[in-house]
Design a protein around this nucleic acid. Structure first.
Lengths: 334, 334
DNA sequence: CTGAAAGCGCTTACAG
DNA sequence: CTGAAAGCGCTTACAG
């Protein structure tokens, strides 16, 4: 019923705990014969080292903390999948928290992970977060953080991102090149880094083609499907509705898509639509969604591998930021 | 740079570690004044209790382990979301592992979580798993397990499921009642519990309506979109293709859907299609997918709450199995 | 009301 | 090659 300990093994073999410990870790000092005996009894009793005790003693941990806005968002669950696969290969386990896009929960999560003495953290900040001391404190305590996707300039930590500006500019340029002139943008509220960058890309594309940025065409909402629906409703209600929409991400784009479809607006003839992410379900709608492909799984793997580099002493250059490639995937919605 | 310890606080206040510890836990013996001093210095130095040390001492943990086949499957990521939300409310953190549907990785994950001395585990077994000693050992060690979705009869543990048999029967009955007579089934390979149950429901519905079960119409594959495509291809190639398809889950159904659409097969006129889960993307295709709604988020919450009941000493009746309701959601694909 | 001591399950310098 | 001792950061019965 109880967990077997090293002391239990030692007692049964008439050895000291030290010797058993060394035998289990294959220390060269220990005789092969003793090692055999220890291994045999360990296997027989189903001994499992207590990683808690080991962590306390060695002040090292095999756990890494992950904080994302929402686990059930396809983009983030794919990132987590990438993180877990790499962590698994390297003998780490991940502790996963979601902030539900609130600052409060994000900071509580950060503390909980710190209290659990994770070796490091991988975080994508919430939409609400504007104060970053919770993250700074962790770093000050010597626990490395790698930021991904929702990164922030205020924190000096390695980052894994895609070129949001460029991706957005590409998306909007594509809308312009396919003949749209009244292009709206569905974006997040607040100061989300990716929101800002994508919006800048949107504006840059318009300007580069001599189009004016019309503030009424920029709808600030959230990052979910329902926000896309709401945004599309507002756009359709305008005296001069847009003929193109660039959404901050695929869920928002799909929300807009469904609303337009409900309203019998023809896509792409009346309104062209572009998303951002290339979630698996971008290909399910008809016409399929044109979008900017973001390598979610690779983002997870890359962020995890940066963290492992730090944990295993491979120093990173100051200000390391890895920018993964996005790609415009043209489908039927434009 | 280093983490502040209780001893650090004690030294700065000229108190003993015991007193500081008691003050922090608000022990009644300690004077209010001392508590104040301790709290003040703890806040000032950003003291964070070392949960690792605490766990070792108290032999309790605030971590619960979660093992799923695949994090980036919409059903499982939603379940995990439910688990995390409830765990968060109760002060627990979750450690998440994916087996990628292999027995090997599932058993290694189980050991890793056990070595991390999680308070309990929530698991949905892999498609490959046929030997359950890795789970049995954990239970024997006194670590409770709650199974969900992919449960197994061989393990005596509380379970959270939906009525797969009934849901499947309902799905197929619906296909029959809408006039289909040649109904195929796309299922998993191997002995997956949910696969078996859903197949039994499929066969029961056919028999109840005097239709014969035609083995060539039962295609064993996997649980992913590509398996649905492959299955649909095989069905279409038959001399007498089916006029209805019941798929083991939504990803498989959507894979079949896309293949049929590519082949210009009209849904629902030529072939009616029903899935299982009601993933968010079931509503994205046109016609939208008829499916059996499975409350993924509630499954996660329920499984987590059963585990918390056990952890907090609220005994469960032997053989507790919670069966959540499924519902037939009729959309355009039938 | 506070402190000294023991101990949770390990690891590792130090001795022999 | 093996063991005794100390210690990781806590908690808690036992004394005072």
């Amino acid at each position: 019923m109880r967990h077997v300990t090293i002391t239990d093994l030692a007692r049964r073999l008439n050895l000291s705990a030290s010797t058993v410990s060394r035998a289990l870790r294959d220390h060269p000092d220990i005789s092969e014969q003793t090692k055999e005996r220890v291994r045999a009894i360990a296997a027989k009793t189903n001994y499992q080292p207590n990683l808690i005790a080991q962590s306390l003693q060695t002040r090292r941990s095999n756990n890494i903390g992950v904080i994302v806005p929402e686990i059930r968002n396809s983009f983030f669950s794919t990132v987590i999948s990438g993180i877990e696969d790499l962590a698994y290969e390297s003998g780490y386990t991940i502790m996963v928290c979601q902030s539900n896009d609130t600052y409060e929960r994000e900071s509580i999560n950060t503390r909980a992970l710190a209290a659990n003495r994770v070796a490091g953290m991988l975080v994508s900040v919430s939409q609400e977060t504007a104060d970053f001391t919770h993250l700074q404190q962790v770093i000050t305590q010597g626990v490395p953080i790698v930021l991904f996707d929702r990164v922030v300039d205020e924190i000096d930590a390695p980052k894994v991102v895609v070129d949001d500006f460029k991706g957005a500019r590409q998306a909007v340029t594509h809308l312009i090149e396919t003949g749209r002139r009244r292009i709206a943008h569905l974006t997040s509220a607040g100061s989300l880094y990716v929101g800002r960058k994508r919006r800048e890309g949107y504006e840059a594309a318009l300007r580069a083609h001599g189009l004016t940025v019309r503030p009424e065409y920029i709808i600030e909402g959230g990052c979910h499907e329902e926000d896309g629906r709401a945004g599309a409703r507002r756009l359709l209600a305008m005296a001069e509705p847009p003929d193109g929409i660039f959404a901050i991400n695929d869920p928002v784009a799909l929300g807009a898509f469904l609303y337009l479809q409900d309203q019998r607006v023809r896509i792409p003839e009346q309104i062209g639509l572009v998303g951002f992410s290339d979630n698996p379900n971008a290909v399910l709608v008809r016409p399929a969604l044109t979008t900017i492909k973001q390598p979610a799984y690779e983002i997870g793997k890359t962020a995890a591998s940066l963290l492992l580099d730090i944990l295993e002493g491979r120093a990173l250059k100051n200000g390391t930021t890895i920018t993964l490639e996005t790609r415009l995937v043209i489908r039927g919605s434009t």
